[in-house]
Design a binder for these strands. Structure first.
Lengths: 149, 149
DNA sequence: TAAGTTTATATGTATATACATTAAATACAA
DNA sequence: TTGTATTTAATGTATATACATATAAACTTA
């Protein structure tokens, strides 16, 4: 569906402006379609993302600031987010032995289990969300990677 | 910059999954680059968007629920957002004459002035944000419009 | 027209985000 | 080594978001 129809705006000053609005609108589309998957586990999209980051570490600890760097939403608060995950027993915090300022974060077995339950449904859901051919989605990824400079 | 490098993730299960993460990440990139423009006016991105919707009405009133339909973030709260804009003197609320449940919203002269000051810098900023050629940005818009189905 | 249903908006509440500040540990330079 | 600056994480605070519920008006239909 054309963005112009979706938000009932007749035209944009130029295609760059349309692209900005289009990206904001499409993100909202994705988040709203994803939230129902996370809900049963009491996770927000960004909490799920942090669990994925930790899983990607395959056992290696990672500091709070490294998590922050790799989060999708740069403005959100890794420290408090990790605290929420800890309260749910999905991660543990350990004092970093080489630098006592830092805090090492590790995913727990329970955290890995939650991901195991979620990942396949998230993957198939994402495929359904992106109504494009293989070729088109590759093109989209290429354009997104390029546009950020 | 490739998403894989930006968030230090080696690979994705498939290009559709990468596209989802890529869209979330790109939205965050845009919002963080835009926020400094809105800040001096005390506006959030969505508040700015609502002002744009109202300006697009060119004087015609629009109800709260119609604003909600046309907002970029479908989950946000049009009623409270309009209240914030009203407190800043940028919009007025009027009881709808034909249906007393509804509330007509109109942008004020002050609201139009704020937009006048913002629009050109937002437009040029957006152009800078999207590091693509005219042809590429058209392609991106086409793909985004298509992917939502 | 009365009773139940739907719609439009507002409000309550918990959590998340944005941004500033604090506190502690470390790095570094005089 | 001492004082200053920087880094890391946590915390404070205001606002925004997400979602449920409430309230009032309008519609529906028996």
């Amino acid at each position: 569906m054309r963005l112009e129809d979706a938000i009932q705006q007749k035209n944009f000053t130029d295609p760059f402006n349309k692209a900005v609005v289009n990206l904001l609108y499409t993100q909202s589309y994705i988040v709203s379609k994803q939230s129902c998957l996370f809900r049963p586990f009491g996770l927000s999209p960004e909490q799920y993302n942090v669990l994925r980051i930790l899983k990607g570490q395959s056992g290696k600890p990672i500091t709070v600031s490294s998590i922050q760097d790799r989060m999708l939403n740069k403005m959100s608060n890794a420290s408090r987010l990790v605290e929420k995950l800890k309260q749910k027993g999905l991660v543990v915090r350990e004092e970093c032995p080489t630098d006592r300022r830092q805090v090492d974060i590790l995913i727990t077995d329970k955290g890995l289990e939650v991901l195991k339950e979620l990942d396949s449904s998230v993957d198939s859901n994402n495929k359904k969300l992106i109504n494009l051919s293989e070729q088109e989605v590759d093109q989209l990824n290429m354009l997104l990677d390029k546009l950020r400079g």
